[in-house]
């Protein structure tokens, strides 16, 4: 069964446990600025929105990479950056219309959510069930994916 992250902002209290868990899992430090999932504080509406890569079908980052450094993981279908091949050119960071693949100056490479190989740390850390890892059919990403179609200059991927 294909699983994906289900994010329900309405359940998010802004505790940022997901950011801590992600940065520890991926970078071995409790540093939210290094997290690949970010919680946005929408003060004007007094709500929080956790946000990360949707592993979108268009795979903008992968399509844009000039050196074959981003691949689709066979098991999770996550788009995964190969640090040994990434040259740090940053083209993927401007190509991804969701803004969810970012350059990390310390490593000279880009980083994005890779679903932790199928056991995402953010979902395990979330105390309110705002982030869960579930059957892909149920996820609210459909809405974002529908939006992505409008951005899509390669709409054949939905044809």
């Amino acid at each position: 069964m294909q699983k994906s992250l289900l994010i329900q902002p309405v359940k998010c209290t802004g505790c940022r446990q997901c950011e801590m868990a992600c940065s520890f899992e991926k970078e071995r430090s409790f540093n939210p600025s290094r997290s690949r999932i970010r919680v946005f504080d929408i003060h004007s509406e007094a709500r929080f929105v956790p946000y990360t890569c949707t592993q979108c079908a268009q795979a903008w980052c992968l399509q844009a990479c000039p050196v074959d450094a981003i691949k689709i993981d066979a098991a999770t279908k996550a788009k995964v950056v190969n640090d040994n091949l990434c040259v740090g050119c940053k083209v993927c960071t401007i190509a991804c219309p969701f803004g969810t693949i970012n350059y990390v100056a310390d490593s000279g490479k880009v980083a994005k959510c890779d679903l932790c190989g199928g056991d995402p740390a953010c979902a395990k850390a979330c105390p309110t069930g705002a982030i869960t890892y579930v059957d892909a059919e149920q996820t609210g990403y459909d809405k974002m994916r529908a939006w992505a179609v409008k951005t899509d200059t390669q709409s054949h991927t939905h044809a």
């Binding site: 991804c96 803004g99 970012n102 409008k150």
Partner: peptide, 24 residues
């Protein structure tokens, strides 16, 4: 560098931000 791709997203989706977000 963080999230700069969203600038492409904003432009290419021609997304209407609404008055409040634009003012922010």
């Amino acid at each position: 560098t963080d999230h700069v791709g969203a600038l492409r997203g904003l432009i290419q989706s021609k997304r209407r931000l609404g008055t409040a977000v634009k003012e922010q």
